[in-house]
Design a protein around this nucleic acid. Structure first.
Lengths: 196, 196
DNA sequence: TCGTGACTTTACACCGTGTAAAGTTGACAT
DNA sequence: ATGTCAACTTTACACGGTGTAAAGTCACGA
């Protein structure tokens, strides 16, 4: 299932990625992906047992190619307000690379339990970053007294959701720069103690 | 199609509403709704031409029963910061009543153009409320200098999205009161000029 | 040369949506 | 009482998408 010719597997993942990212208003079907990868629809099932697992593998593939870990690690070196800004910029800047795949996964959630689990898993990873960023604020005494650390992490996580990004950049037509700047300001305003 | 026995139509809408709202992790099917309404699956199509239109009618039905207009109108009477708080409380308090239906509609968007249009239409209605709330802030000179009126409306609209509500209350386990309080604070912090 | 792995082709089961059409039932009008 | 009409049921089926199954092709290497 995953021990076969790796180049085909990667061709499939790249094809799925490309299709899911570039427009593709209509739901991307297995046959679309197969065609784009230059193989038969059935051959897809030689590499991935289901559409849900193909989507999950695609997100992991994108993560690997785009090296999300390195990007986020970078944001961890800053301190105080700058650290929050850096985290927002790092994750917010990554969303455009994966939103197509994530949205496809989210659309399956309603009916497919496996897709739901995979989506939750991915989102949990982001939440850990939020928790860490909030912990840094707390340590420096910058956290607003109105929120507990958990609440602050939840709020930041929500602010940085793919849905929020999609609404502002896709539906409202904001540029990526506008989005990042607004999220940085909003996160600071919502999470940090406002000293004159 | 809509001139028949109105009680059956309403039974259908109530059944759909109830199913969509109460848990129902699995996608709610036409046959589920028919069963719950006590009629055959085919009879559903005597009242609604498609699943998408049934969902749309269900949102309108909920709006009518819960009198969303009256609730929102109330928030328009306040002024300044209180008006923003009132709008957030009014709409934020309404979301729990409709989130099931809206989410079902959102899930169809990916594949069904009609569902997409219906969803966009509903969301546009909310946006108008946001524009009005921001206009009130602008008129009173409370709007932050960091945002244009359009940007502020977009941001408020995003803050008040069903997705944001769902993430905080469903995924993070916040109470409705926690949600409303946090959104009021965040909206104020993000949209209003911060005078000492 | 034999086998094996990667893939194709064909066929089909399953689900959910939507269409089509014939049959049932009860209310109401004449 | 008879007829008709609307609301609904029942049965059947087409369509599209996912996933399973199995036989066939083909190239590469031991």
């Amino acid at each position: 299932m995953s021990s076969e010719n790796p180049t085909t597997r990667i061709r499939i993942l790249d094809a799925a990625w490309k299709l899911l990212e570039s427009g593709a208003a209509r739901g991307v079907r297995m046959s679309d992906i197969a065609k784009a990868a230059g193989i038969s629809r059935q051959a897809l099932y030689l590499h991935f047992p289901s559409r849900a697992e193909l989507l999950v593998a695609t997100t992991r593939h994108v993560d690997a190619v785009k090296d999300v870990d390195a990007r986020l690690a970078e944001s961890r070196s800053a301190t105080g307000p700058a650290r929050l800004d850096a985290f927002v910029a790092a994750w917010g800047g990554y969303i455009p690379e994966i939103h197509g795949v994530i949205r496809a996964l989210a659309a399956m959630m309603e009916t497919d339990a496996e897709a739901r689990a995979a989506y939750d898993d991915r989102m949990a990873a982001v939440r850990h970053g939020c928790v860490a960023a909030v912990a840094a604020l707390t340590a420096e005494g910058c956290l607003t007294p109105h929120l507990s650390a958990d609440e602050a992490a939840d709020l930041l996580w929500t602010l940085l959701s793919v849905e929020t990004w999609a609404r502002l950049t896709q539906d409202c037509g904001w540029t990526q720069a506008q989005y990042v700047a607004a999220m940085q300001r909003t996160a600071r305003a919502a999470l940090m103690r406002q000293e004159i």
